[in-house]
Structure formats: structure tokens, C-alpha cells
Amino acid sequence: MSELDYMDALAAEYVLGTLDAEERARARTLLEADETFAAKVELWERRFGDLHLMVEPVEPDSGVWARIKGKMPEVEQGVRTTELPMPPAPLPTTAEPPSLDAIEAVISETATTLTSEATSAAATLQSEAPTPEVMPTTVSEAIPGPEATLAPPSESKPVPISEAPLPLDATRTSAVEAMPTPPVAVAPAVASPQAVGETQAQAVEPALLRVRRQLGRWRAFAILMTLVVVAVAALLAAWRFAPDRVPPMLQPLELMRQAGVPLPAMPAPRRPAPPESRFDE
């Protein structure tokens, strides 16, 4: 116990680097022939391995890479068997090269999507549901606020999904339906929305079509909700700026009466709770 045996010492000193040329040559031969010795060497390399962290990095001459690259084809032909696609990361890590590309793609897609939001909404509606064309314009001009809050959920959710190669399983499963948005949203921005939309619809797979239809429904829903907001806003504006021109049916007092506010004896069918509590005090 008080001494390393010969093989251990040889392995340790091989790794440390203190063997002379002759001993080192012997160690190299053993390394090839003796698995036990190779394992010992590997163990010592692992023990001392992190000492390299304390060495100052030194940038090698750029010619070094050129030399390596120049010798690579020879190696390549001997060793490379197949050209496989990029392997999945063996550890749960963020893989730098693919994520960079994906992020770039996502950024440009997002930009296109955002700028062409109104156009694409109109295009989708045209091809999916016969809704008046006036709506999108009204929406974006009258009330940008509600638009911004309503549209993004259907618009922005798909964006992170398009980086499918990344291991973002949680996000992917949570919003699978919305996945192929980018192609849909991007296409109208490129050329005449309807034409591109139709040719695409014929070309793409059924799954994509189904998703597009779902997307269209969501857009329609978003626009419908926007219209409701527009109507309420218009009513409020009318009350505020031209009260005398509001039809009697839409006067605030009349509405309140309909809602059951002034008549506690007749509870309103729709929303009894708030008016009553307000009146009780």
C-alpha cells in the first residue's frame, strides 16, 4: 500500500510526462497491447484532466488549420463511411450551430409576419370564409389596441415552434396545431395573396390544409371579437360626443333598464349579481 506497483507508476508517469524516451516507448507499446494498462492510463488522464483549465489559451497561427484541412481528404476517404444528417445532441444541451440558423430564420419570419399581418388575415379570410373585405381595414385603423391584444395569440405562438429541430418539447406539444403558420403568413406577403394561397393549397399536404383551415377559423374569431370591441367603442364614443343622436334603444338609461338595473323587483335574466350588489348599498 505504501508504493504504486510498477504498472501503476508507469501509467501515472506516462500521463504526468516524466518518463524518458525509452520508458515512454515501452509505455506506448503496452498501451496498444494491454487493456489493463490502457485503462490505468485513462484513469490517470481523467484524474489530471481538468488541470488543463489552468493553462492560458494561446491562439495558434491560422496556417495550422489550413494544414489540418489540407490533410483531411486523405483521412476522410479512409474513415468516413456515410454522410449522415447532424446527430441529435447526446446530452440535453443547446446546440449552437443549428439554433443560430433557426433563430435567424425565426427572426426574419417574425418580421414578415408582423408587417404583413393585416394582409395575411384578409387573404386567409378570403380563401377560407366569405367575410366582408372591409373588416381588416376598419380594424387596424379604428382600434389598434384590441387588434394588438387579440391577434398576437394566434400570430406569435407559432413562431417559436418553427424551430422544430430544437428540443423544445413542451412548447411544441402545447401548440402543435399552429405549427405551419410561417408558410401561410409569409406567402401572402410575397405575392398576390389569393393566387399564392390557392396554388399553395393545392400543392401542400392535407395536414397543412387542415391546419390552415383551423388557423382561418381563429383569425375569423379574432376579427369577430375585434368587431365587438369596435361596436362598443363606437357606442361609448357616441354617448360621449353626440348623446342626442344615439337612438333611444341605445341610450345608457334604456340599456341599464334592460339590464335590470332600475328594477330590482325584476331580476335581469343575464347578469343579476353585479346590479343587485351595486344597488344594495
Binding site: E76, V79, T81, L84, M86, A89, P90, T93, T94, E96
Partner: peptide
């Protein structure tokens, strides 16, 4: 992690 990923790609012959 990134270096491990790169090594795995190199093992497949990715220049």
C-alpha cells in the same frame, strides 16, 4: 455541451 455535440457530429464525418 456544445463541444460534445460537435464531437458527435465529427464522429459522423461532418467536416
Amino acid at each position: 455541451g456544445e463541444i460534445t455535440w460537435l464531437l458527435a457530429a465529427v464522429a459522423k464525418g461532418d467536416a
